[in-house]
Structure formats: C-alpha cells, structure tokens
Simulated scan of single mutants.
Amino acid sequence: MPASPSTANPEPTTRAVNLRVREEIRDLIDQAARIQGRTRSDFMIDAARRAAEETLLDQTLVRVDRETYDYFLAVLDHPPGGAGYERLMAAPSPWKA
C-alpha cells in the first residue's frame, strides 16, 4: 500500500516561542534581518540555533589516550618561537587600532 502524502513527507512540527524585547533591540534585529533579506523570525531562529549549537559544542568532552594528553601538555609548556611567531606577536591588535 503506497504511503499517504502525510506520511511520505511529514511536515516538521513547529511551536510558537514568544519573546519580549526592548524596542531598540527589535529595531537592531530588524535592520540586520533586512540586510540579509530575511524575516525577523527567520533571522532570530537562525541566530538562536547557532548560539545553541555553539554552546553545546563548547561543552563537548574530548577524550584522548595518555600519550596524546601528555603531548598536548608538552606543547602548552613550550609555546612556539621563531621569527614568524615573533612577528605575529608584535603585530598590532585589530581591536586596539
């Protein structure tokens, strides 16, 4: 028996999320959404999704064997050097310029 249209490609369930936001923040969001050619809702959903993913990824535990961990600690204890590193460290910080 062939699948009915509702079971062959079911629509994802959506639920409302209501937010109260100061007017100047809403205006900022609207301006950014317009620049991207998106609706306020699409812009906010995407921004919230990305923030949620980043938060969860920041909580990810990485397990390694003892040898790899010891190597990692050794690298931290002996930072890089040389002309390229010195040049990088001497470069002005963009946020201070």
Rank of each mutant, 00 (worst) to 15 (best):
G84W: 00
Y71R: 15
N18F: 04
D30Y: 05
F43D: 07
A32C: 06
A3T: 01
T68V: 02
W95L: 04
S4E: 04
L61H: 10
T7G: 03
R66Q: 00
Q36Y: 08
T13C: 07
K96D: 02
P10R: 12
N18C: 02
E53G: 00
A90N: 06
T39C: 06
A74Q: 13
A33W: 12
P5L: 06
T14E: 12
N18Y: 07
D42K: 08
N9A: 04
V21W: 06
R15S: 09
D70N: 02
P2Y: 15
K96I: 01
A91M: 07
L88E: 12
V62T: 15
T13K: 11
G82K: 13
L19D: 09
V21Q: 05
L57A: 03
L19G: 03
Y85C: 03
V62R: 11
Y71H: 12
G82W: 11
L56P: 02
R26L: 15
A47P: 06
T60C: 01
Y71Q: 11
M44R: 07
Y85T: 06
A74P: 06
D77H: 02
T60Y: 05
D58W: 00
A97R: 13
P12M: 01
R63Y: 15
E86V: 07
R66A: 00
A90D: 07
L56D: 12
W95P: 01
P79N: 05
L61D: 11
R40G: 09
S41C: 13
A3M: 02
P12Y: 00
N18P: 02
R38C: 08
Y71N: 14
V17K: 09
T7N: 05
E24R: 14
L19P: 10
V75E: 03
A52P: 03
L88V: 05
D58M: 01
N18G: 01
S6V: 02
R63W: 14
V62H: 10
R40A: 08
A47K: 12
V21N: 03
L61E: 15
L88G: 05
G84F: 01
A8R: 14
N18T: 13
I29L: 11
I45N: 09
D58L: 00
R66T: 00
L61R: 11
F43A: 04
I29F: 15
A74Y: 08
T7I: 15
D42H: 13
E54Y: 11
F43K: 07
A32E: 08
L88A: 08
D70T: 04
V75T: 03
D65T: 04
G81T: 13
